[in-house]
Design a protein around this nucleic acid. Sequence first.
DNA 1: CAAATGACCAATCGGATAAAATGGTCATTC
DNA 2: GAATGACCATTTTATCCGATTGGTCATTTG
Lengths: 190, 190
Amino acid sequence: MAVDRRQQIIDAATNSFSLFGYKATTIDQVAKLANVGKGTIYTFFKNKEELFDEIINDLIKEMKEVANDAVNPSDSFYENVHRALYKLLEFRKKHQLTIKLSQEARDIGTPAVLEVMEKLELAILNFIKDKVILAIQKGEIKDCDPEITSFIMMKLYIALIFDWEKKNEPLNKAEISELFEFYLFRGLST
Amino acid sequence: MAVDRRQQIIDAATNSFSLFGYKATTIDQVAKLANVGKGTIYTFFKNKEELFDEIINDLIKEMKEVANDAVNPSDSFYENVHRALYKLLEFRKKHQLTIKLSQEARDIGTPAVLEVMEKLELAILNFIKDKVILAIQKGEIKDCDPEITSFIMMKLYIALIFDWEKKNEPLNKAEISELFEFYLFRGLST
DNA sequence: CAAATGACCAATCGGATAAAATGGTCATTC
DNA sequence: GAATGACCATTTTATCCGATTGGTCATTTG
C-alpha cells in the first residue's frame, strides 16, 4: 500500500501537538506515530518548526473556511462580522490544537508557539479588515480606518468572549451579538 | 529625632518594590534601607504581604485623586470618562511601582502581585462604573448595564493605549479621545 | 539508485542534591 | 516596653550529571 508518507507525518504531528503541545512533542514520537523512520521526516520538512508551520497554515485555511461560511452576502455587515468573529473565536476555543497551544503560550511561552499564535490573530484581523473595507465602500458603515476598526472589533470580541467570563457568568451568543451591536454600531450617546 | 519608623518602613519598601519588584525585595533589605531592625517591621506589619497591601492601598488612594482631578462636573460624561481613564492608565504606565509590578506579573506571575494587579484594575473599574451609573441617571447616555459598560470602556482603553502600540505607532491623547468617542458614543452605523 | 532508515552526535533539558537566602520569631538589649 | 538581630524552618537558587532531543548521514532496502 503506497500510503502518503508526508500526510501521515502531518497527521501524526497534528495529533501529538494537539495532545501534548509543541514542546512536549518529540520528533521520535511523531515518527513512531506516523510509522515512519525519523530521518524520513527530515526529507519532507527542514526541521520541527517547519512541520509545525505547515500544520498551522492548514489550520488557518480551515479557519478561513469557517469564517467564510459564516458570511451571507444578503445579510448586513454587522450581522456578518458578528457571525464570522463568533465562529472564529468559538473555533479557537473548541479546537484541540488551538486550546493546547494557547495553554502552552500562556504557561510556558515557547517562542515558536508565541509566534504562531500571533500569526493566527493576524489572520483573523486581516479577514475582518477586508470585510470592513468592503463595508465602507458599500456605505454600510461610516468612513473609518479599517486597521483600527478591525483591531477594535476583535479586541471587543475577545473581551466579551474570553475576558468577561474570567470574572462573570459567560455571555451567550445572542447577548454578545446584542452588546456588539449596541456598543459598536448604535453607540452610547443619547 | 523621633522619626516616624512606620513611615520610614513604608517608604523604604515602596522604593525597593519599585526598583526590584515584590519577590526580589527582601525584608532584610527593607530593614537596612529604613535604618530599622528587621524585627521592628514585624511590630507594624503582620508580614511582607500586609506591608505590600498597605502600599498598594496608598497607591489606589493616589489613583483615585488623579481620577477625580480629571473630572469636571460641567463637562460631558464622555469627556470626563475619557480624561479620567486616560489619566489613570497613563499614571499606571509611568508610575515606577506599577511598571515594575506589571513586569513581575507578566514575567514571573508572583501570586501576591497578580492579586494586587487585579485589585488595581477593579478599583479603576469601580470608579468608571460609578460614573456610568450617574450618567445613566442624568440621561447623558442610553440605558445600559453599568457593569458591562464600564468593563468595555476599560477594555477599549487598554486596547488603545497598551495593545495597539505593540504593533503600531502609539496613538496620542487626541487620537484616543477621538476614537473613544467615535466607536463607543457615536457608533459605526450610518 | 533513490528513498527510507535508525544509530549516532552535539546540545539541551531536567531531576537530585547541596548550599544559600529568606520570611518570620523571640530572647535579649537599651 | 519598644527595638533589635541572632536564630530557625522553609524556600529558593546553583550545580552537577545522566537522560533526552533535534538533527545528520552512512547504510540498508525495495
